[in-house]
Nucleic acid binder design. Structure first.
Lengths: 123, 123
DNA sequence: CTAACTGCAAAGCCTTTGCATACCA
DNA sequence: TGGTATGCAAAGGCTTTGCAGTTAG
């Protein structure tokens, strides 16, 4: 759990808050380095890991096998992965009915819906 | 593309055809080794990779970051990951409406719905 | 001041690859 | 027999960890 506020942590938080969707560790390092030069990948991994354990961040793993991280402060949403630019965007889909569609005896705690296709810029 | 039918490939295919859901490379090796003793992990990776490239297999990457593989011969379906036993099961959910819920300009080619929770055995 | 944090480089996992051998066809 | 497929071990990529130096409070 994070105990001190450092330049590096603030930079990472800021980047994640400004993101349109989940970002990979690499992307976070690139963007946060502009705010906190010299930021190491190791620190990015340490901070996102702490955030995930503390529940402030969630990790997303889609079919392209890249792990991405996003702030949890926002509303429940889903993801769209553009197969051209590999960028992930947040989207909203009605999903109330999902929990009722499982076999007898199963219980659902959460779900993930991901669409794959082409984003507006790449189409 | 696969050119020869070998003991190892037949074992892997057989395991994937019998599976209730997608399996990890490890799981495939364990189960297929019972049929073809000495089967190496490297071969499993080579065979599933060929299958994926040939389109007969699909790869699945859920939030637990484990890559799993499954035969594509079956109907369109979705996945349920049990958070207790880490097993993945195939499920069916109506999903016709999904493609219409994306922002202006986006096009959807495919989707993935995953439920997380507890399976009948673990509940 | 001092315990938490960071950067670096080394270590760890999972997956891929190079090479000599085994084995389908 | 000839070339594909396999097993082993080494190499690769992403992520984690150990350690010594740095810094927040």
């Amino acid at each position: 759990m994070s105990k001190r506020s450092t330049r590096q942590k603030r930079a990472i938080e800021q980047v994640l808050l400004a993101a349109r969707g989940p970002l990979s560790a690499q992307q976070i390092q690139e963007k946060a380095s502009e705010i906190s030069p010299g930021l190491s990948l190791a620190t990015v991994y340490r901070v996102v890991r702490e955030g995930a354990e503390a529940g402030t961040l969630s990790t997303v793993c889609l079919d392209d096998k890249v792990t991405r991280y996003e702030d949890r402060h926002r509303h429940h949403h889903h993801h769209f992965l553009c197969e051209d630019c590999d960028e992930v965007f947040d989207i909203t889909i009605p999903c109330e009915m999902l929990a009722h569609r499982v076999p007898e005896g199963y219980s659902v705690t959460r779900h993930e819906i991901t669409l794959y296709g082409h984003c507006a810029e790449c189409a």
